[in-house]
């Protein structure tokens, strides 16, 4: 059963040459018809994901991997094409930190959980699991601004991972966490696969990608170069480097 399908998806960003946000700038630049550059972050992407699959996307920085995840999560709207998503999503994007820094870890868990659609009762039930997974039991009343970067990322990922969504989007979680956290993530991925959850994974760690993925997509310059068995894609990708 298809849970995600991308049909001919393109995403264009308009990048202003100089950010034009005030009225004066609008008035002055009205004569110049095009004071921005068009960037096609993704071009004609087609793929589909079946329920329960672990899909990874690899590619250089700026190739469009994160944009792709943001399109799946509806944070961005595609410029062209049709996206279908048949399940709830827990996104962990760009290190997933949308925290309120002046609030405590505890308050942030409830707020972030609410954005994922979790009620207070629901969060009460999984609060300890979230905090234990992030290893922040001692810090629940600390303000988030006093946490280290690694701790913050662990917390954000832990909330998303325990939201019990059908699809988990994971963008570069392993880059910041320590060894213990990485191991916990691996255990979690294994468990999710068993539970039939769908995971979309973005990483530069080809070893991990090969180990967990059912399929791998290589995004090159905004285009989906190839999407196939992990060994095959990684071999082609490594050769192209």
């Amino acid at each position: 059963m298809e849970i995600i399908s991308f049909q001919n998806i393109s995403k264009r960003f308009k990048l202003p040459h100089e950010k034009k946000n005030t009225l004066k700038e609008y008035l002055f630049f009205v004569a110049k018809s095009k004071s921005y550059e068009e960037l096609w972050a993704l071009r004609q992407i087609d793929f589909s994901v079946k329920k329960g699959e672990f899909i990874s996307f690899i590619g250089a920085n700026g190739s469009g991997k994160s944009t792709l995840l943001k399109l799946i999560s509806k944070v961005y709207l595609p410029t062209a094409g049709k996206i279908r998503v048949g399940g709830t999503i827990a996104p962990f994007l760009e290190l997933g930190v949308g925290f309120q820094y002046d609030l405590s870890v505890k308050d942030n868990v409830y707020l972030y959980g609410a954005t994922l659609g979790l009620s207070r009762d629901k969060i009460n039930g999984i609060f300890d699991t979230i905090v234990d997974f992030a290893r922040l039991g001692k810090y629940i009343d600390q303000k988030v601004k006093n946490l280290s970067t690694g701790m913050e990322v662990r917390l954000a990922f832990s909330i998303a991972a325990h939201a019990d969504a059908d699809i988990l989007l994971v963008d570069e979680v392993l880059a910041v966490g320590d060894q213990i956290f990485q191991q916990k993530c691996f255990d979690l991925f294994a468990r999710f696969k068993k539970e039939g959850k769908t995971i979309i994974f973005v990483s530069h760690d080809l070893g991990i990608v090969e180990k967990f993925s059912d399929k791998v997509g290589w995004i090159n310059n905004g285009g989906l170069e190839i999407m196939d068995q992990p060994e095959k894609v990684i071999r082609i990708y490594a050769k192209a480097l």
Binding site: S73, K74, V75, I89, P91, L93, E94, G96, V97, G98, F99, T115, L116, G117
Partner: peptide, 9 residues
Amino acid sequence: GGLIKKIYF
């Protein structure tokens, strides 16, 4: 903005 960029609601 931090939330808007990371998550849809």
